[in-house]
Design a binder for these strands. Sequence first.
DNA 1: CTAGAACTTAGAGTGCGCTCGAAGTCAAAT
DNA 2: ATTTGACTTCGAGCGCACTCTAAGTTCTAG
Lengths: 132, 132
Amino acid sequence: MPIENVTTAELSLSISQVAERTGLTTHALRYYERVGLMLERIGRASSSHRRYSEADVRWVTFITKLRSTAMPISRVLEYVKLARRGEETIPERLELLLIHRVSVAAQLDEMATSLAAIDFKIATYQGRTPTE
Amino acid sequence: MPIENVTTAELSLSISQVAERTGLTTHALRYYERVGLMLERIGRASSSHRRYSEADVRWVTFITKLRSTAMPISRVLEYVKLARRGEETIPERLELLLIHRVSVAAQLDEMATSLAAIDFKIATYQGRTPTE
DNA sequence: CTAGAACTTAGAGTGCGCTCGAAGTCAAAT
DNA sequence: ATTTGACTTCGAGCGCACTCTAAGTTCTAG
């Protein structure tokens, strides 16, 4: 019954706890690790069970923000690889995020436009003349 | 050499013209027709080439709004089937759209939240303390 | 001590939404 | 008359992002 994290007040979570906290499945978390999306190697308990640090959880959380704005995993991977190279790649990471930002804005815009079209249809179904 | 659309001033477009106008590929348009997404049978020229009416184009355009708000094709199909049954299914179609509307709002919300997180990161990379 | 839940790896399988290829037809231009 | 290119059908193939299975290990509760 080895106790980890004696040094700092680092919590260390099991994979299922991280799954709960992030909304991903344990399968997805293992998959992310396999394809190289994690910033650092995920710690292991003596049993070889994964132990996630707070930083790991923050990173997974950030990844989900990128993913939920339709950044492909391949792009996230580029970003991770830059991040692993250290501070010197901040300009490149910044550029990557700024480019992505444009696409997110476009997505928001398209979705808002689509919503308007759907609302228009809803209004006609509700018998309200939508232009009225 | 039978001439279609004699009655009205209906324009009739080729598949590639519709592709241009809707942003879909001709492949996707054929696929949509194949899986039953079109409201009515698409007209054919004597050559058996597809001829799209204005109403067809409007329908495809509406479909793309549903799709771009992440409505699965299976759901669009439900909607189409209702629509083909006529006016009596308007309440059901309305309900389907209202339910979808909720999901679109949630998507917009999530995307906005993710954008905020990305902007936060951008700000830190730009050396601005983001909370400042 | 034992049962059962949770974990491990490696690799195969899945669902969605197209996308592509093959083989053929047709119309317009040269 | 022939070449070019857009079209047709049908079915297979593909990329993405997981998701699941199998076989084995380990942790937890009673």
